[in-house]
């Protein structure tokens, strides 16, 4: 009853058009968000664009140079390695833990929540400083392994939220009990029942981690630096050498972020639409 009323009372004759203040605020927002990005895209294919309103000409020269840059493939590869390794470790550490806490150890939920919010309260530079101070001995000192540990900590909340939401949504407790009553052990329950059901959550968590780690600069530059150069490090290098090539790198970086976001949306639309619903409700 209440539901049908709320849809009814949205009078179709009223407010089909946004108010002018809404148009103003939203246009301002769109300009702020899109002008820097679009300009970078255009700049990366412009021959020269510092004397005129529109570029003087267009070229793919900077992409050629970007792809030809020594280190280009290496940094791309390193970024991929870092992202995938982080996702792997996150999955191994976080998914079983979240499942465990939800079904067997509800009392640890507050502790888990605190541990998951903690990374927000630690500036990355501080985490980097703490890690290089403590692990100042080989083989860990300033190693990619140490970096992966740091990046997992920093990206933990991104994996946690979708996984935790998914586990809550499928009511893991009941599924586990059902599985156990049919004779499955903990690992069988996790592998055969829980994981297939929370796969959309795991996927969007992994994609979120991917997009944050792929663009990660601070921890990488401060913990390992030039020894394990990733894509963002190369980009910073080029902002000081050649702006045009740097813009081509930026475009690659933006494009990856867009693509991953679209993937996340797509994955989200397959799974539960809980989050978007809360925003949609008026």
């Amino acid at each position: 009853m209440a539901k049908s009323r709320s849809t009814q009372s949205r009078d179709p004759n009223k407010r089909v058009r946004p108010a002018s203040w809404q148009i103003f605020m939203v246009s301002f927002f769109l300009l702020y968000m899109l002008v820097p990005i679009i300009s970078t895209y255009v700049f990366s294919v412009a021959t020269r664009w510092d004397r005129t309103i529109l570029p003087e000409g267009y070229t793919l020269e900077f992409y050629k140079r970007a792809f030809a840059a020594s280190y280009f493939t290496i940094t791309l590869r390193n970024s991929l390695i870092l992202s995938l390794a982080t996702i792997l470790v996150s999955l191994l550490v976080i998914v079983p833990t979240v499942y465990w806490v939800h079904t067997r150890l509800v009392g640890a939920k507050p502790l888990l929540d605190i541990l998951m919010i903690l990374p927000f309260g630690i500036p990355m530079v501080v985490l980097a400083l703490a890690l290089v101070q403590v692990y100042n001995f080989p083989p860990l000192a300033r190693s990619p392994t140490l970096l992966i540990g740091a990046v997992v900590i920093y990206s933990m909340p991104f994996m946690y939220r979708p996984v935790s939401n998914a586990i809550q949504a499928v009511d893991a407790q009941v599924l586990t009990e059902a599985g156990q009553s049919l004779g499955a052990n903990v690992f069988q329950v996790l592998y055969r029942i829980i994981i297939p059901n929370i796969l959309p959550g795991i996927l969007s968590g992994s994609l979120l981690v991917f997009s944050t780690v792929f663009a990660e600069y601070t921890l990488t530059s401060l913990i390992v630096g030039a020894k394990f150069k990733t894509f963002p490090l190369l980009l910073v290098e080029f902002t000081r050498i050649n702006g045009n090539v740097a813009s081509a790198f930026s475009v690659i970086s933006f494009t990856i972020a867009w693509l991953v976001s679209i993937l996340i949306l797509w994955v989200g639309s397959m799974g539960n639409t809980k989050r978007t619903k809360t925003i949609r409700a008026r």
Binding site: M1, S4, R5, Q8, S9, D11
Partner: peptide
């Protein structure tokens, strides 16, 4: 029953519906 117009009538008395 639901959707019979009783709430709408009430809301018109209250002034929330025109």
């Amino acid at each position: 029953p639901s959707g019979c117009g009783k709430t709408t009538t009430l809301r018109m008395i209250a002034g929330f519906e025109q």
